[in-house]
Write a protein that binds this DNA or RNA. Structure first.
Lengths: 71, 71
DNA sequence: ACAAAAAGTGCTTTATAATACTCTTTTTAG
DNA sequence: CTAAAAAGAGTATTATAAAGCACTTTTTGT
């Protein structure tokens, strides 16, 4: 599975807000280890974990119908 | 955590497509048990599981900056 | 109303996410 | 350059998601 775009979004948002991993872990209630694991591309977080991280940065997890990509 | 809206979206999409849980489990490669668990509101799926379910129905998991709700 | 299909539950096992340390590597300010 | 901060990694433990099975309940079409 490739979660690169979601990972990138989390990192980009965090950096935009000038929040460190330690701060985000603290704010979100997610362990620092799990956050590091996820941001470094090694993770498969639960929806709860992802929601906590997103929520702490004013984002939310959504489902969207895929736009057909014309190749 | 309350994932009601995501659960509703999955169920609604599945019903729109006239796909049963058995069919979706099969198509997505997610176990029937995990799908039932999630749709019945008892689950906390991993991002991989949620992505598989969404993907099989032409949807994708996305993060979105929350729109401030005026109460 | 009833039979069939679909949805949901109980139980167990296995796999792995989350956690909590410690330690190393990389990035950043000064 | 280099000290401090931040990011990433190793290991162990605990919690729980995923899976597979059988079984029950609910929904549906006739």
């Amino acid at each position: 599975m490739h979660f690169e775009s979601i990972i990138k979004q989390i990192k980009a948002r965090r950096e935009d807000l000038q929040v460190t991993q330690v701060m985000l872990a603290d704010l979100s209630g997610v362990s620092l280890r799990a956050l590091k694991q996820f941001e470094s591309g090694k993770g498969n977080p639960t929806l709860e974990t992802l929601s906590k991280l997103a929520g702490a940065m004013g984002m939310e997890v959504r489902l969207q119908v895929k736009i057909p990509q014309v190749k």
